[in-house]
Simulated assay, not measured.
Amino acid sequence: MIVTAVPGAKQVIREIWKPLAVLFVWDVTVTATYYVLPFTAPSLPLTLFGSALALVLGFRSNSAYQRWWEGRMMWGLMINASRSLARQARNFLPEEATDLKRTIVLRQIAYVNALRCQLRRQKPDTDVLRFLSEGEATPALKRTNVANGIVDGTGRRIDIARRQGLIDTIQQAAMENVLVDIANAQGGMERLKNTPLPNQYRFFPMVFTHMLCILLPIGLVETLGFATPLGSTIAGLMFLAILAIGDDLVDPFANTLHDVPLSAMCRTIEIDLLQAIGDEAPEPLAPDKDGVLW
């Protein structure tokens, strides 16, 4: 996620130079053709066409941002639930169960990192494996859904603690409720990841936007003359930018610079949970040199 108020010049150029170059070449071609081989530009209802397209793109961008914000809200719930689970493990379990407290807390840190990797379509990385012992990691890594395997193991450990008399049934129920919140948040994230916007929301806005960019210089050349490449390119770039906003936000977990900063939020959970059990914690992740927080 870009956290700076104004994107860097290099990043802006990297984002727009290709569509800008294509638009400018097309607009120059139409303008040159008009002056070399004069033609009468058809009367195109560009104002009506552009207004209708702007509405469609606005609805599409709003839908994409709603998905992005829902993903961020679910990770906010995950952060809160992780803190609650660590607090319950620390307060409910007796002093003689220190190892179990640490196991539950470390498994939760491994879990959120495993979920991050799954949502980004990556294999579990070292941030997952370093918080699990080999015996604990193997059963979870054999599962198709590694994150779910980790949280299932946490639930079993809580049940074992109740059977051993370390916690009572009320305390077990309270911890299970937190695990349910975690599972619900994961399910919502997987729904967002696996369910794209309907095809109509993706295909038709793209077709109509490119169609408008093709027609713009033809409809404006008689009015703007030699200024057509400048005016038409800027107008077309605005519509392409709105189209790109929807593409950038529609998948909040795609591991691009426009996505929800999963790595930073996993680090936040790691810091809070390690400090909850008295361990030394790393520093929060900072934006990179381009102002992007991953």
Rank of each mutant, 00 (worst) to 15 (best):
T103D: 12
S43A: 12
Y34N: 06
G58P: 00
D27R: 01
S51V: 11
G76V: 02
N62R: 01
A64V: 05
W75R: 03
Q11E: 14
Y35T: 04
V6T: 15
R87N: 09
D99Q: 12
L37S: 10
P19Q: 07
L44V: 11
Q66T: 09
P45E: 07
W75M: 08
N62I: 03
R102F: 06
E70D: 08
V36K: 10
R102N: 08
W75H: 03
L77W: 02
G71C: 03
N91D: 14
E95S: 13
V22M: 08
T31S: 11
R14H: 14
N62W: 01
L37I: 07
L57I: 00
W68C: 01
T29A: 15
P19N: 08
F59N: 00
L57P: 10
V112K: 05
Q88E: 11
V12L: 15
G71R: 03
A52F: 06
P42I: 03
Q11A: 15
R83M: 08
A21K: 05
V6D: 13
Y111K: 06
T98K: 13
M1E: 11
M74N: 07
W68R: 00
R72S: 07
A54P: 02
V105D: 06
A114M: 04
V6G: 10
L100I: 12
P42V: 02
S84D: 11
R90I: 09
F92I: 05
K101A: 07
L20G: 12
E95L: 10
E15Y: 14
E96D: 12
R102S: 10
K18L: 15
L46C: 02
I13N: 11
M1F: 12
E96A: 07
R102H: 10
K10L: 15
W26Y: 12
I109Q: 07
L55K: 00
Q11L: 15
P45H: 06
L55P: 00
L106T: 02
A52V: 09
L106P: 00
P38V: 02
W26N: 04
V6S: 13
L77E: 10
V3P: 06
I109H: 07
R107T: 04
T31Q: 05
K101D: 04
V25T: 13
P42S: 01
A54C: 01
A89N: 04
Q66P: 00
A32P: 01
P45Q: 08
A86D: 10
R116Q: 06
I16C: 12
A21E: 08
